[in-house]
Design a protein around this nucleic acid. Structure first.
Lengths: 343, 343
DNA sequence: TTGTAGGCGTTATCAT
DNA sequence: ATGATAACGCCTACAA
């Protein structure tokens, strides 16, 4: 079933059928009605391959999501879909595996689907450095800062990861914690992980807190299991702490379990705070203390910037979206109650 | 940059370039080397649209995943990818939204990408009933039973959801629970939810346990939040129970939180068991009691069946994969300790 | 408003 | 082993 068949069935020419199907002007209401009806009744669907092959440009925005495991992304995709439905643009979504190059993939999609712009969810600057050059439509990356890349058609919106981590650790310090262990992501691979680690070090420095990375830090890939194992490794490595900073909620969850198995309660014996603000964290016992990224605003603002760039080839811009700290129930004040009395 | 350009650059004809690029026989080693090198150096990539438009058949298997939220699927996709890499087939993955018709989507993909077969992860028999007809390649649906559909080219592998639920509830009963509330999925939409509900009713019947659906049952869509709200609703509706059966782990998690906020501890005051066996459940405190679906075996066996069907147009088959019950730490024996003494 | 025809980049069929 | 050429299904000038 092709538009040629539809043309025969309706007695119109393929050109007319194509125009009717694509909502173009210059088609009589009558012709349009007849053709659309015939298409519906015969269950006709345009062949995307042929369409995209021929098309010089579409009216679509391409969303490229990297890393399906990431709990935050599902939420954001939904928001973007909803927002997109209110515009005259179509949204195309593509999911790419954690170990693939999302920018190379985007470049391919640009050649083949000719989207007006691309929205990235996740990914790393390394990929952009390597493969962004051939992409010439406006792009926005959500979730990490791309300002130092200096591409004129690449904007970004993100949470300030450095500051998020710094404040998370500062929260622990304010509660009297001085021995803090850290479970981070892979700093070599992920800019986000690197920034969160550096922000955390900064907090230590500011408050003159001793920190021995070899003993008190584990860098692992984000997962429940790795959070669990990191704590086991920390304890076996002789790390002693009253609090843990985990660079991601998922690791905090595994960590809490490991602590529990070692006879340490959260927050009675050990406090723990992390970054991300996954909805899940609010349903745990204890509720996770976490730096909540504003998924809604990140997604909305990312799309907004893209649409602005689409309509007025404006300059690239780089924004940060505020976060908030949810104290949850996993951190505890350990300053001695008697402190005030002695003063 | 098209194969035409490559042809000019290398002095060969487009036909030869195409054959070299696709690893076809009848290309001299010399020509192949020259062409591949030119392609590499110029960063050439085939245009998928044109390729698929023209191609009569591919050597690919299409995987259609419905419902990104489902934690189990990520794991299974990975297994399938790994297994697939050991074959001579290519794997194409497509993710479809929860509210879209996955079978209609698959039909479209079949027309456009001409895969050798299709593997479904998730989805419902309703969609198959409506839109499977035009699909004529071998298909396997993993995660629910498709035997009553009776399509000659549709096989299925799944966990016996009815039995899984029945045994979960029976586990509670064996521990002395008589007042059991149920948090299920949407039975109208999901076959799986319906079966789990019916299995659970069966257990009640077998043991002569009273159950008032209006008061002791809530049917909601799987999510942390809905599990939480279901418990709130149950309590407000006057349901009294010593145990809960949740049709999915995600709901059990929200439920535990709600219980906790109402001053009920798990498992001290209320026992809870669910179905799925998500890895996450093992990292919670308390560890979730759950019916563990064998994700590994489901994925492996699903792929195996598909490959068998591919190579020997065998008949469709419908299998079940064993599950196991992990007692976790969220259920408690409430039979009075003195029972034996009185006997 | 509608019809006609050329071509998008590739594969596949025939020759050579 | 290689080259020429006709499709694949659709869009889009341009002509009518």
């Amino acid at each position: 079933m092709t538009i040629k068949d539809l043309a025969e069935r309706t007695g119109y020419a393929v050109g007319t059928v194509s125009r009717a199907l694509n909502g173009h002007p210059n088609v009589s209401p009558k012709a349009r009605a007849i053709i659309l009806e015939a298409a519906r009744e015969s269950g006709f669907q345009l062949n995307t391959n042929a369409k995209q092959l021929k098309q010089t440009h579409s009216n679509a925005v391409q969303l490229v999501v990297k890393g399906l495991g990431n709990e935050m992304f599902g939420e954001m995709v939904e928001i973007i879909q909803n927002q997109m439905a209110r515009t005259r643009y179509q949204l195309l979504v593509d999911y790419v595996d954690e170990d693939l190059n999302e920018v190379a993939r985007a470049a391919q999609l640009c050649r083949e689907r000719k989207p007006l712009g691309v929205l990235f969810l996740g990914g790393s600057n390394q990929s952009f450095l390597r493969d962004f050059a051939p992409i010439d439509v406006p792009c926005v990356v959500i979730t990490h800062d791309a300002s130092n890349l200096n591409y004129p058609n690449l904007s970004s919106v993100c949470t300030n990861d450095y500051e998020a981590a710094r404040q998370a650790v500062e929260t622990l310090i304010a509660l009297g914690h001085r021995q803090i262990a850290v479970i981070g992501g892979d700093r070599e691979i992920s800019d986000t992980s690197r920034l969160r680690y550096e922000g955390c070090l900064q907090a230590f420095r500011e408050h003159g807190i001793a920190f021995d990375p070899d003993r008190d830090y584990k860098g692992v890939r984000y997962s429940w299991q790795n959070g669990y194992q990191a704590v086991q490794a920390l304890l076996q490595g002789g790390s002693r702490f009253t609090a843990i900073f985990a660079a991601a909620d998922v690791m905090a969850i595994g960590a809490i379990r490991a602590l529990w198995e070692n006879g340490m309660r959260v927050p009675e014996d050990v406090s723990i705070i992390s970054v991300d603000g996954l909805p899940l964290g609010g349903y745990l016992v204890p509720k996770l203390a976490t730096v909540v990224q504003d998924a809604d605003r990140l997604a909305r603002r990312g799309l907004e910037i893209l649409l602005e760039n689409l309509e007025s080839r404006a300059e690239a811009c780089h924004e940060t979206v505020p976060f908030r700290i949810s104290r949850g129930e996993s951190i505890r004040d350990i300053r001695t109650e008697g402190e005030d009395i002695h003063a």
